[in-house]
Design a binder for these strands. Structure first.
Length: 364
DNA sequence: CACTCGTGGGC
DNA sequence: TGCCCAAGAGT
């Protein structure tokens, strides 16, 4: 057989399914061959897998499933407990939507996930990809599942050189041409597995690919350069001052962030607003939880988010028990009990740094 | 469409 | 080290 042999959609799908039957990966949320996994497990894993790697998700998935084994149990949980369990996984709106979705499915769908893509799409946290994934994997519906893996595989198979995200709809249409009616769940997972393990972003393993003879990108020698992407914007560096205030009994002042926006609902050290210009300590003191002789710790703490970087100076001070909080929603908590709260990685970095440079007062 | 929204691992 | 990006969704 020569390279770039025209192959029918049906034969492409069949070649991929044959490959999947031989190379299928065992994953915590995956059922045994031929068995349909519970929609709750599919949904939970798919939300966690959004923009997140399989090894990281595996641990969170097991812990969630052990603590909340059913949709009903998750719907009955407190939001703060869900955020706490989600701590470190990132994109915390997923946890808020997860919780809201569980309650909505329980209240308006009798505790059962709908099987139709469009109905799934209406649920919080479920977009085009996740709706298709649940429909295909949990209900065996022939939905076209397009994630980052599929975009890459299809862009190479069809030699699409239009850059992303412009090419998104075209890639979806090309993927839909191949989506088979039978074994929809297996096919969807096979295509994503192919992208994750063979048709990788760099150094694709074309010699191990079931579609190697049909791949137009490979035939043209451009597979590895696909998909093309629009240039990304640069990440600006922003600045703030975070306040490490320890009470004489050893408790430190924390606060809960607003439910919407960055790190929504998560716990932080009180901080100035974040802005482009660095802060002067005197200027920052106006935003401090209490008027005190604040001392700046030597090095700022740096943390990267998706679209900007932040450099936070840590200002430390001590105060007496009974002093005013100066802040609504204040949480006085000794460092030994920080683990009871939902601390994002940024807060953990600040805490680790502050505790090292400003060890707690020794209680008499 | 363009922007917001985390984190850790790989090279 | 700096950059890439991973089973995207919401606005």
């Amino acid at each position: 057989m020569s390279a770039s042999q025209p192959a029918s959609p049906a034969s492409l799908a069949q070649m991929l399914l044959d490959w999947y039957d031989r190379h299928r990966r065992r994953l915590p949320w995956r059922a045994a061959p031929g068995v349909r996994p519970a929609p709750y497990r599919v949904w939970l894993s798919e939300i966690m897998l959004q923009q997140t790697t399989v090894p990281v998700v595996a641990g969170y998935f097991r812990r969630f499933l052990e603590r909340w084994p059913t949709l009903e149990s998750l719907a009955g949980a407190e939001l703060d407990d869900v955020l706490h369990a989600w701590q470190g996984l990132g994109y915390y709106a997923r946890a808020r939507n997860l919780h809201a979705c569980a309650r909505l499915v329980l209240a308006e769908h009798g505790g059962r996930f709908p099987a139709e893509e469009n109905a799934l799409r209406d649920l919080p946290g479920i977009g085009r990809y996740t709706a298709a994934a649940i429909a295909a994997i949990a209900f065996d519906r022939p939905a076209t599942v397009v994630d980052g893996n599929v975009e890459r595989v299809i862009a190479r198979l069809r030699a699409v050189d239009t850059p992303l995200p412009q090419a998104k709809n075209a890639l979806y249409a090309l993927a839909a041409e191949i989506t088979p009616e039978a074994r929809a769940g297996d096919y969807a997972q096979a295509l994503m597995d192919l992208g994750a393990s063979v048709c990788t972003p760099r150094n694709p393993g074309c010699l191990a690919c079931p579609w190697q003879n049909a791949c137009e990108g490979r035939a043209q020698g451009i597979a590895e350069s696909l998909p093309r992407r629009a240039p990304k914007r640069e990440r600006p560096l922003r600045h703030g001052v975070s306040f490490w205030l320890m009470r004489s009994d050893g408790a430190v002042l924390l606060r809960r962030r607003p439910d919407e926006g960055l790190l929504g609902g998560m716990i932080e050290l009180p901080t100035t607003p974040w802005r482009d210009e660095p802060w002067d300590l005197a200027e920052a003191s106006a935003h401090a939880p209490q008027p005190l002789p604040w001392q700046a710790l030597p090095e700022p703490v740096r943390h990267g988010f998706t679209h900007f970087e932040i450099e936070l100076l840590v200002a430390a001070a001590e105060t007496e028990e009974g002093a005013a909080d100066g802040d609504d929603g204040a949480i006085w908590c000794p460092p030994s009990r920080f683990s009871e709260h939902a601390l994002p990685t940024l807060t953990r970095k600040l805490v680790r740094y502050a505790a090292r440079h400003r060890p707690g007062l020794v209680r008499k």
